[in-house]
């Protein structure tokens, strides 16, 4: 069947089977390979994308169910250069092998939109759906806090100006 998907603000028409998952559409049909397949069982979170602002495991999410939603991938949030969380992840050393990184960036993007000033516990809880085998997480948490701080300082600066 044919469906319309809105990915990173662009409407795409794709041919799918009823059982096709969103990850396969993104990677194989739209060539958006930032989302990774790590387990295809909804455990590792490397395939995380946002649907209407909420992080989901695109390896389990029905592509058909994603019609009429706003889908955001790591490519979308990178379109205008590095976002605050991406910049902080690079600076803080929140990245090692990088395979989990796009999924983690998406989860944290959603977190920071909903909670501008998270505690370390908030960040760790938000990451319950994302596994990072390399870093032991602490630099990812500190990157998130730094991104939040930078965004708040930026906002305060803008308000002052």
């Amino acid at each position: 069947m044919k469906i319309n998907l809105k990915v990173n603000g662009i409407l795409e028409e794709v041919e799918i089977e009823a059982s096709t998952v969103l990850l396969d559409v993104l990677r194989d049909k739209l060539h958006l390979t930032g989302a990774k397949e790590g387990c295809r069982e909804g455990e590792c979170g490397a395939c995380t994308v946002l649907i209407d602002g909420q992080p989901v495991d695109s390896c389990l999410y029905s592509a058909a169910a994603a019609a009429n939603t706003e889908i955001e991938t790591v490519e979308g949030i990178s379109a205008n250069g590095l976002s605050a969380i991406q910049k902080a992840m690079v600076e803080e050393g929140g990245i090692q092998c990088g395979f989990c990184t796009p999924g983690i960036v998406m989860t944290l993007t959603a977190l920071l939109r909903q909670n501008a000033d998270p505690t370390p516990k908030d960040v760790a809880a938000a990451l319950n759906g994302n596994i990072c085998r390399c870093t032991g997480y602490s630099r990812i948490v500190s990157a998130t806090l730094k991104a939040a701080k930078n965004a708040m300082a930026q906002k305060a600066g803008d308000a002052h100006a």
């Binding site: 790591v74 490519e75 990178s78 690079v90 990245i95 990088g98 990184t101």
Partner: peptide, 9 residues
């Protein structure tokens, strides 16, 4: 290699 990894490129 940080920017490439963090953008999924």
């Amino acid at each position: 290699d940080g920017p490439g990894k963090v953008t999924g490129q």
